[in-house]
């Protein structure tokens, strides 16, 4: 088997896994396993394939500052944004740019807090975390990082709940958005669509 074939097989395997994870994400939502905050935090304590435990916790805290649960509209938890980011990071068709921006942001955030406060970002008080995010968005890397996170948050508001986000159309309802018809079917979601049509 030549190198190209090995790479191709590896990519196919990764794509199958990615599609499966989307399905599991959807099922999990359907059965309501991720409806309690506590469960989400427990899940974050387990290192996943993309981020370390600390990165998970820092990421979730930054997301909640960028898009707070302030009584106006849905929360990050309602939108399942964290799951969407994890899923997107494993997109086998991605050029890897968004992943590199997030990893860079999380690394720089953690190292700057560790050196100045001798703690992880998530261990700071909420007030201090907000101050640090305010400082972070003024730096090039921080602005890039937060801008990318906002794009993921927006996706979790705007795209079809079939992607395991926008749970119960909570984002659409908030904005009184009327989706187009027909809506996507499970067989033709990204990335299955690419595989199904040999794009």
């Amino acid at each position: 088997m030549c190198t190209d074939q090995v790479i191709q097989l590896k990519q196919q395997k990764e794509r199958r896994k990615f599609i499966k994870q989307l399905t599991i994400g959807g099922l999990v939502l359907n059965f309501g396993f991720l409806t309690a905050c506590q469960e989400t935090l427990e899940r974050l304590s387990i290192e996943n394939e993309v981020f370390t435990t600390t990165q998970n916790k820092n990421l979730l805290n930054v997301l909640n500052i960028l898009f707070p649960d302030d009584g106006n509209g849905p929360s990050i938890h309602d939108l399942n944004t964290f799951h969407h980011i994890l899923w997107s990071m494993k997109d086998p068709y991605s050029d890897g740019y968004s992943k590199s921006v997030l990893i860079e942001g999380l690394d720089k955030l953690e190292s700057s807090i560790l050196s100045s406060k001798q703690k992880s970002f998530f261990q700071l008080s909420m007030e201090l975390q907000e101050e640090e995010v305010e400082k972070m968005v003024k730096k090039d890397w921080g602005e890039r990082f937060c801008s990318m996170l906002l794009s993921f948050i927006f996706e979790s508001i705007a795209i079809d709940e079939a992607y395991a986000v926008n749970t119960g159309q909570v984002g659409w309802k908030w904005l009184q958005h009327q989706p187009g018809f027909p809506r996507p079917t499970p067989n033709d979601l990204y990335p299955s669509f690419i595989a199904n049509h040999q794009l």
Partner: peptide, 12 residues
Amino acid sequence: SKDEYLACRKDV
């Protein structure tokens, strides 16, 4: 379908 993720975000 009217799948914004597929048509516009992923430009398939």
